[in-house]
Design a protein around this nucleic acid. Structure first.
Lengths: 153, 153
DNA sequence: TTCTATGCAAATTATTTGCAGCACT
DNA sequence: AGTGCTGCAAATAATTTGCATAGAA
């Protein structure tokens, strides 16, 4: 059954809808709203914290409790809909799960986060693990960068 | 992988002593004890959390307040005496600062943490940053691995 | 003695859980 | 009516801060 209300939502959200149902999660207003915010963030390549999402929702006049945000975010993560990151070490940030693997580059001046993927590095990682007698099952790579030309930012 | 000198760690501690004085930090009992615990951990390649250190100190009958441990750890970090890591995302772990840069490999089965350094990966990282218009100022790389030969556990 | 260090308790921050009420089938 | 969803408030966990006292130079 399709709810006429979300006709304004993009395909991706509908896709998320499917994922949710498949995972036994009902597509409720809070979940839809959170999904939408994550969507927008994905478009601009942003990574949001639970609180960021709360702010966005308040701005959009779509009240959702912080508790629910945390709970939904965890559910989404378990379902594989979103990825959780811990760049800051203080609070986690989330992003809609990507189809493909990628790593992050964080600008220490602007806070901007860019994504990249380098097969050479990926391969080297496996080699390193193997050489140490292990099998690589995952990894986390974050580059901290700063604008090249003496940027005033 | 056992180390020869395991009873007397005075030498290195004295080194830390110098670093502390140079940084304007007095060598007090708590700081010396914490340094000693970090020393032992370094010998066995362990990374300790503030609470781990508290435990170690209690075992060694050297009472130090958790508050002090956190405070000292921060001071040590600022002085460049220890490095802070956030493998778990919940609590930070520390290790005596290494003279040389290195990354980590965490075994998802045993929790064991190994260190490594690969110049090819380091170089690739710079190239990636440059290509994106940035200068690499730092990075964090953690490989999650599992013992090779069929995990029998 | 002077200034820094310590530690207990209270404060913070990020996140989770208990539980009563609401929603949808 | 039943089962899942929400959100407030209280509970946690990790870490920090206020403040009076103890300690190093």
């Amino acid at each position: 059954m399709v709810d006429p209300h979300h006709s304004e939502l993009s395909e991706s959200v509908l896709h998320g809808d499917q994922s949710l149902q498949k995972a036994g999660l009902k597509l409720t207003r809070p979940r839809r709203d959170i999904l939408r915010v994550l969507e927008e963030a994905a478009n601009t390549g942003q990574h949001l914290s639970a609180d960021d999402i709360l702010q966005q929702l308040e701005i959009a006049d779509r009240q959702v409790g912080l508790t629910t945000i945390y709970r939904v975010l965890n559910q989404f993560e378990h379902v594989g809909l979103v990825d959780r990151h811990n760049f800051e070490g203080e609070h986690a940030v989330f992003e809609l799960a990507h189809r493909s693997h990628h790593d992050h580059m964080v600008c220490v001046e602007s806070g901007r986060i860019e994504e990249f993927c380098n097969s050479d590095i990926e391969r080297l990682q496996s080699e390193i693990a193997e050489a140490a007698g292990y099998d690589l099952v995952g990894h986390r790579l974050v580059l901290f960068v700063r604008p090249q030309k003496g940027g005033t930012d």
